[in-house]
Amino acid sequence: MFDYLANPTRFRAITAVIFPVAVVMTVTAMCYGLYLAFFASPADYQQGETVRIMYIHVPAAWMALLAYLAMAVSAIFYLVWRHPLADIGARAMAVPGASFALITLLTGSFWGRPMWGTWWVWDARLTSMLILFFLYLGYIALADGFERPERGSKPASLLLIVGVINLPIIKFSVDWWNTLHQGSSVLRFGGPSIDPAMLLPLLIMALAMLGWFICISILRMNTLLAQRRLTALEIRGHSSQRGQA
């Protein structure tokens, strides 16, 4: 199946169908989710209106982890099966993934200041999330750090795979160690400890961010594919000119 998808022409044909669907999903979910998050959902019994930061912070954090996981899976496909499209996929997801990590850190900071009384502490959850952001930056720098981009693919893919170890650390940091950050509210044993009226906007916002991520990744993959073709054509043009001379 992967061989089937790895053909760039077929990839373009398939994404041409997926893309408009994803756009509609993103816009609908984003409008509905933001309305629920900022107007229709209730204030929290402890945190009051400040709880609304959660509807941006938590889905962004989920997406930061999911995007990294998707990149790492792409990296495995690239390293084992040597499909260039898998490498392009990982490269395409890096910037939106890093944005999600940055949004998580910033909104978390804005939330922590009024609720906890601090912008930042070096507890296990916050620190491991910061490391994820640096992993994204490291990947981008490594993948784009060569004159011929393909040369960066192998080391950057390895970096991605090594960094996967950080994902369970982020997820379980609040269970393994004492942290200032509270435990999981949604994905936990014994079911969510969050009221359905607040869980719904959270999930809708997660859907919106997932849709946005899919849209951006498809756009970026097509751009990178076009860029690769352009470079290939340029090289071919140069060598044929040299042949004539």
Binding site: Y45, Q182, G183, S185, S193, I194, D195, M198
Partner: peptide, 18 residues
């Protein structure tokens, strides 16, 4: 020297809590 608040993972509307 510093005091930080730590909250738990429960979220609910004030009306439900009441």
């Amino acid at each position: 020297d510093t005091v930080l608040a730590k909250h738990d993972e429960t979220y609910m509307p004030a009306e439900v809590a009441d």
